[in-house]
Design a protein around this nucleic acid. Sequence first.
DNA 1: GTCTATATTCCGATAGAC
DNA 2: GTCTATCGGAATATAGAC
Lengths: 199, 199
Amino acid sequence: MDTPTTRVSILEVSAELYADLGYSAVSMRDIAKKVGVTPANLYHHFKGKDDLIREALAHVFAEKTAPIAALLNEKHDEAERLGIFIAYFVKLLAEDRVFFRLLVRELVDGDENRLGYLARSVLERPFRLISSLAGPGQSEDQQFLATVSIVSLVLGHALLAPLLPHLPGGRPDHSDASVVIGHVTAALSRAFHSNGNDK
Amino acid sequence: MDTPTTRVSILEVSAELYADLGYSAVSMRDIAKKVGVTPANLYHHFKGKDDLIREALAHVFAEKTAPIAALLNEKHDEAERLGIFIAYFVKLLAEDRVFFRLLVRELVDGDENRLGYLARSVLERPFRLISSLAGPGQSEDQQFLATVSIVSLVLGHALLAPLLPHLPGGRPDHSDASVVIGHVTAALSRAFHSNGNDK
DNA sequence: GTCTATATTCCGATAGAC
DNA sequence: GTCTATCGGAATATAGAC
């Protein structure tokens, strides 16, 4: 808020380099060079590398989370809302490489504190929505597992995307957002939206 | 098994540390210290850090891939074989932290060469099996997408496991292998093993 | 095959001028 | 707020004795 330009530039560059290279591989020198300032300047705006990366993460997550909240506040049929969320989530992971890689890095490398923050800031709201739509007639545990499965499907397709061209019968367009959305939506309606009992 | 050679010890320690910390964060000093040799010794057995990590990766993947191949050669009913593979895959990802993290790191950070190797060495064989079982009456593309979804489900549950306790209604035992196996198997039979058409 | 010793580069971080 | 200059340490990697 105080001095937007340099500080925000640092945050965005940091998020991008961290998403691409990981924590240890990105250096303060790299960030400073790409921003166009000196390394010492970074320490004026942030306490250190740890603080900088943490804030960069929060910056990107906050930025990408807002549309989800807005999306969930729209008035729609419940089943429709699930489809809308899935479409947004698939597109987000497919088109925003930085956000996707930050998310996966946190899931793999994040400690308890960071995972807690991730859950609260990004995933809790959509998680509640999906839970209410996933297998309405089932037990709480089954709803929870179904929700994890829905997120897993979207996340997995994004994670496996670069691998698909190397698999037998695979083509890059198997990861196109429209293809994934259609496939996942159809699969989910069969798996979790029928009146089946899960055991 | 006879006394492990120094070379194999180096490979196993390297895989473990790399899985935990990532490429840049693990140092030749760390590896040497944990193995019980000097850093210079590592350069006698391997050309450099790049070469060492690459070989460590191949070592672990080869080790974990063999049981899958054996599994697929057993004589079973086809639907049964899918269940057996899923159970093995879920357990592998849940119990072998090193393998799981190596797999995800490759998916996120691997270049084309490494992804090609990963596809050929680990994923191609199970992928072919699952493809033949996933929606037998459907088009080749639908079979392919269904297979990606099956892998996504298992991978996603493993990836999201550490996050579950932080989500509303989540408990650590939602990631227990037996729970995930039961849930995923049931969901898959509804989503991809019925005679549904996907669109 | 394993060691000691070291070359060289890069890292995060700080002090202080402007 | 941004810079120049630099410190102390750790990184990969090599040379050569045993």
